[in-house]
Design a protein around this nucleic acid. Sequence first.
DNA 1: GATTAATTTCAATGATCGTTGAATTTAGGG
DNA 2: CCCTAAATTCAACGATCATTGAAATTAATC
Lengths: 118, 118
Amino acid sequence: MKPVFHPDMDAVEPAAVFAALADPIRLGIVVALADGAEVEARCGSFNELASPSLLTYHFTKLREAGVTRARVEGTSRLISLRREEFDRRFPGLLDSVIEAARRDPNLPRIPDGQLCRA
Amino acid sequence: MKPVFHPDMDAVEPAAVFAALADPIRLGIVVALADGAEVEARCGSFNELASPSLLTYHFTKLREAGVTRARVEGTSRLISLRREEFDRRFPGLLDSVIEAARRDPNLPRIPDGQLCRA
DNA sequence: GATTAATTTCAATGATCGTTGAATTTAGGG
DNA sequence: CCCTAAATTCAACGATCATTGAAATTAATC
């Protein structure tokens, strides 16, 4: 498995972050990761948001914007928010983003307990 | 002068807001409006960020996303942030957005005192 | 009413975006 | 070693994006 690229948080530009958040599916992923019981989630947990191929595309966008992290484990990938690092770089931003997105009625949601790391 | 459209703040979607903020020039406009001495600014105040034609395009994006307001006065248009309304809808978001953008070293800046409404 | 300054409109461009589907990689279990 | 599950890669598509420049609008001023 080839290593996954994660940008230096200091090199992450605000405009790039907002570009990553400018999509309902990606916002849905962020909210699910923030609200889910598990800190890490398999890509497959999001299968009802989009096709696997499209999910890979969206995960890449989020990861390259510094929002998420990906960890390889066997044939799975575990996705999580880069909470602490991101908050240090952009204090308060992720919280208000999540709070804003959480109230959006027509964001794609994934049922509770469907996020798993196993 | 034909009236300018402003969306109902309740109808503004988070993803659309982030799309509006996902551009350096528009972020520069938002920061300038937030930090400038004048609450309202003429479009022409931003002439060194982009051509007039391109500025119109960017102002439209910001306005349709609920971020800014435009008021017609004579041959000019006065741009301002929709602060209170926006904050009521998305508490804390604009503040952390501006704070994040303010620290971006390669955002286009407009010199202090160059914003004017006259 | 002609002139001028501020801004918009419009058509055109190349670039990027979100999406699809089919083919490929990778790793674990029989 | 084969099979299956999980996810990526790749080429293609139409849609939207940021940008340009030339032409049109609009209103204050002479």
